[in-house]
Amino acid sequence: MTTTPAIDIGIPGDQRQAIAAGLARLLADTYVLYGKTHGFHWNVTGPMFNTLHLMFMEQYTELWNALDVIAERIRALGVVAPHGGSTLANLASIAEAEQQPAALDMVRELVSGHEAVARTARSIYALANAASDEPTADLLTQRLQVHEKTAWMLRSLLEG
């Protein structure tokens, strides 16, 4: 019988576990934000319909693609990636949408969601950096850029 070799990527097991736990929270936040953004895409109404419908589609597509990248990094660290709606909802710092808000309230919720994901990503960075886990640090930097820029763009719709 063949056994799987132990993971030896230069990051001790306890650090891999801690980083993966942080990435699981990032995955969960991204998943909940994805669902909220996609739902808002389907249900937005009003004078800004076309603008928001298309913007939300770009955003949920980016979030959907990010889910795989985050989950695969968790797996590369030797940990099972969490999955399933209730599991991810329990890990997330973002609440799922419970109602059908007006268009600008959708925008406000998404600003808050992107800022929450940025805070989660930032909270993991020190762990990755301390472990010399450059791939995770790079992933987190990329996610921070996306979420901070998206929050800024959405926030701009609320000004003036």
Rank of each mutant, 00 (worst) to 15 (best):
M55S: 06
L52A: 08
A118T: 07
Q100F: 12
Q17V: 13
D29W: 04
S156Y: 07
E148W: 07
L63K: 07
Q99N: 14
T61R: 13
E58K: 14
A103C: 10
F49M: 04
A95R: 00
R119N: 11
G22W: 10
P12H: 04
I19W: 01
I70T: 06
L139G: 00
E148Y: 06
Q15E: 15
A76I: 01
L67I: 14
W42I: 06
P135D: 08
A126I: 13
I9T: 13
F40K: 09
A126F: 00
G160T: 14
A28I: 08
Q99I: 07
L110H: 02
A130L: 11
Y125L: 14
I74K: 02
A137Q: 11
G39P: 07
A121S: 10
T87L: 10
L127K: 01
M106D: 08
M57H: 14
S112E: 13
A21T: 09
Q145E: 15
D105F: 07
W152S: 02
L63A: 08
T61L: 01
M57R: 13
N50V: 13
E134K: 14
D14W: 13
A6D: 10
E115N: 12
W152N: 09
L26W: 05
L26I: 09
P82E: 13
W42N: 12
D68M: 07
D105H: 11
G46D: 11
N50K: 08
E58Q: 15
N50Y: 14
A18V: 11
I74P: 04
M153T: 11
P12R: 02
S123V: 11
I9A: 10
G160R: 14
Q145V: 13
K149Q: 13
Y60T: 02
T61P: 02
V107I: 10
T150P: 04
A66M: 06
K149W: 01
E134F: 13
I74L: 00
D68E: 12
T141S: 14
N90V: 10
I124C: 03
T87A: 15
S112D: 12
P135T: 09
L104C: 03
V79L: 08
S156E: 12
S132T: 12
R119V: 12
A28K: 02
F40H: 10
L23Y: 05
P5H: 04
G78C: 08
D29K: 08
I9W: 01
I124G: 00
R119P: 01
I19Q: 02
G13H: 09
L54Y: 05
A118P: 06
E148I: 08
E109Y: 01
G10H: 08
L140Q: 02
L91S: 02
N90K: 15
V146A: 12
A118E: 07
A6H: 13
